[in-house]
Design a protein around this nucleic acid. Structure first.
Lengths: 265, 265
DNA sequence: GAACAGTTTTGAACGCGTTCGAAATTGTCT
DNA sequence: AGACAATTTCGAACGCGTTCAAAACTGTTC
């Protein structure tokens, strides 16, 4: 996977103008000791447990600190803002999702089915957190926040997810003769599909997010069909347009540094 | 949440648990007197001016109240939360956009051009607010907030925008033989297109949001082409799928209660 | 051991959005 | 006019996220 460097883009942040540019990532630069690492972990675990129990907003920093047996200031020493406590959450869920989806896909060869499995797996993985998802979705929607799914800080999690969709594709018996360049772009496009599903899910208020689940059931075969049809000649101009749009406007935005091959011939 | 009554959604609110469920809309139920109305307007105008000058977060409720010459409590009497001050903003911008776009479209017959004009018009209308757009986009992204573009409270503004796109279509010389049902859905789909552009715009950090403008220039002709091609036979199954998806999953979510009204002014 | 430079921890304090009981004002009826 | 209710206005106070100077701890060097 390891294509190159992410453009550093450190100083996008609103608030401070004198950010030391060193420790933007989460809360700390380096864990110096084991005890330090333990404290950090304790705070994170406590916070995540409390978020699940009471929701994000209702869980105060004071309460987290008290429950973890440390002072507020100490919590802020490790996590420079409340929202950074979410990042750990986000990362872990991405990882769990990828593992679960791969397990479920095992043996399934049909692309449409694999895609659906991957998406449903996300819904299941995220289900426990649906109630307070809105509260941190709000935070994630802030472009200046490192929690935005498009931010550099989210790059590792995003890469993991994109990789999963690459697996979805590679395990499928796709129609031959598909445009190779297009296939190359698909993992990212499918990740975008997931983002749309997530968006829908966040707003979904039905029991067990049944509506989103049906949305997935309906939209996946359609996606498969579109991909399949892209082989036909009439589609060629559109496919070219779409490819251009994705390469020029979508990928750069999600921090993809132009791995583009020059158009041969 | 498609059919029937809109569940009052009062108790989705985090903070209070005893919301009277009466005045969720903006800040007040009814303006009782002229003076009342004047005070309300004064606060709103002051707030909007200060938002533009200093940004949303940096403008405190205390500062707004002081500048407007009223007490904080009074401001809260009219606007039950800071975010409600944005709604006025949102509504006004939607109105300005529609007016500006219609003026610019006058005489233009080509669909693709009309669509591009409508979108560019939005970018121009919104340009002064781009700097702090992120700050209130964050608020708008909260599904539980009335400021979400999908919320019921945003319905009037949304309807205005959709109406504009209906005009975009009606003034165009579209290919004949287009699926009538599809055409009927298009205004909402084009509004969604605008939402995507807005999303892109919010995250856009280029000079004068040049990147978004190019995105519009590239994506509009493509949209036009897709619509045009939808006539061909191979597309029929996909078009049917797409129509189903839109009707069953998109329109209900954006609060479409099958109300159609002729453009009367 | 003492002295010293980190690193970690503390808790009081700040500024903010918001709430609330009460005061001031306005409107209505006799 | 006075009496009474409704509306509008006020500002102190609450809880929250966050900051910061100082204290406590740790490891290193004589």
């Amino acid at each position: 996977m390891g294509s190159g460097d992410v453009e550093s883009a450190g100083d996008r942040n609103e608030p401070g103008s004198a950010v030391p540019a060193g420790e933007l990532a989460g809360g700390r630069a380096q864990p110096k000791t084991d005890k330090s690492e333990a404290t950090r972990a304790l705070i994170l675990e406590t916070a995540m447990r409390m978020f699940q129990e009471r929701g994000y907003e209702k869980t105060t920093m004071r309460a987290i600190a008290a429950e973890a047996g440390v002072s507020v200031g100490n919590a802020y020493y490790y996590f420079s803002a409340k929202e950074f406590l979410i990042q750990g959450f986000y990362d872990r869920m991405t990882y769990d999702h990828a593992a679960d989806a791969r397990a479920r896909m095992a043996g399934v060869k049909d692309f449409s089915q694999r895609l659906e499995i991957a998406l449903v797996s996300w819904l299941d993985t995220a289900a426990p957190y649906h109630e307070f998802s809105a509260q941190f979705f709000r935070t994630a929607a802030d472009p200046t926040s490192s929690l935005s799914p498009f931010s550099n800080e989210s790059h590792p999690a995003r890469a993991t997810a994109v990789e999963l969709f690459r697996d979805v594709l590679q395990g499928s018996e796709l129609a031959p003769k598909l445009d190779a360049e297009l296939v190359e772009l698909l993992p990212d496009v499918l990740w975008l599909h997931l983002m749309v599903v997530v968006l829908y899910w966040v707003f979904d208020r039905t029991e067990d997010t049944e509506r989103t689940r049906e949305f997935v059931r309906r939209s996946t075969p359609m996606a498969a069909r579109v991909i399949n049809l892209s082989r036909y000649r009439i589609f060629r101009p559109i496919v070219r347009d779409a490819k251009g749009l994705i390469q020029d406007f979508i990928l750069p935005t999600i921090g993809k540094t132009a791995v583009k091959q020059p158009p041969a011939s």
